[in-house]
């Protein structure tokens, strides 16, 4: 298996607090991986390091064997890492359709000051994406009017539109109902299978993790605590103690 993402002794300190502590992690192409861990264990910081929002204190990040440590956000975005934020990162004033349309403009060969041709296949792609995320009947609605769960799906759709090689999902089911959570798990499994996309998910909801994950990384106090399949992790006494046991 080709390795798509590799972190080496990745560390981030905020003053005296070490949020991410010498994390070594490798992700193979096409893998679906969950990161779990108690609050404040550095999951979101790890994402922020990978996407370039924060610069690491020390350590390296390699994406497709290229060093991306400390590169600016938009450059890393262009290289093929897509991210879904914890708080839905959508464009509130734009319609659902335009939300999906914005990421497509990067592929437009014509000047961005010219209107796109109406007969372009982008419209088909957008419609297909909207169907995939179950929002095709709300295309004309300003995104701000969507329900919370729908906003999360919209953002997944927006990230998908960029066709990233690696998709980072930060708590995609936060604030969702049980039914929405199941639907989201199904959506992510489908994307992983159909698009052959590498997906890294941060999640709290253990039910969700059980449904989707092939492999789990447990973070604790900024460091990798344990790695393995759902069964291994679930039956691990130490993990249960720091995380699973408490949340049940």
């Amino acid at each position: 298996m080709t390795i798509i993402l590799k972190t080496e002794r990745l560390t981030k300190k905020f003053g005296g607090l070490t949020a991410v502590d010498h994390v070594n992690m490798t992700l193979s192409k096409g893998e679906l991986r969950c990161i779990i861990g108690p609050n404040g264990c550095g999951k979101s910081t790890l994402f922020n390091l990978i996407t370039g929002t924060y610069k690491p204190t020390s350590g390296r990040i390699a994406f497709k064997s290229k060093d991306i440590t400390g590169k600016p956000v938009h450059i890393i975005g262009r290289m093929g890492i897509g991210r879904k934020f914890q708080v839905p990162g959508i464009f509130n004033q734009l319609t659902v359709y335009d939300n999906i349309r914005v990421p497509f403009f990067r592929d437009q060969r014509r000047s961005l000051f010219l209107k796109p041709r109406k007969d372009s296949d982008i419209h088909q792609k957008i419609t297909a994406l909207l169907q995939k995320i179950n929002l095709d009947d709300k295309a004309c609605l300003p995104a701000i009017h969507l329900a919370h769960g729908e906003k999360q799906w919209l953002e997944i759709g927006m990230v998908l539109a960029r066709r990233p090689q690696l998709m980072l999902l930060d708590e995609p089911t936060a604030g969702m109902t049980a039914a929405e959570t199941r639907k989201t798990a199904q959506l992510i499994r489908n994307i992983s299978r159909e698009e052959k996309m590498t997906i890294l998910v941060i999640e709290h909801d253990i039910g969700f993790v059980r449904e989707i994950a092939s492999r789990i990384t447990v973070l604790y106090k900024g460091a990798v605590f344990k790695e393995g399949s759902y069964e291994t992790i679930q039956s691990d006494e130490a993990v249960r103690k720091i995380y699973l046991g408490k949340s049940r």
Partner: peptide, 29 residues
């Protein structure tokens, strides 16, 4: 009017609404 209705205008409004998200799509805000 042409500018705001062009793709550039849509990207501009996207940056206004959520700069971090627009940058993660590769747009230099």
């Amino acid at each position: 009017t042409h500018i705001v209705q062009s793709p550039f205008g849509a990207i501009l409004r996207a940056i206004r609404d959520n700069e971090a998200r627009a940058e993660s799509f590769g747009y230099n805000s």
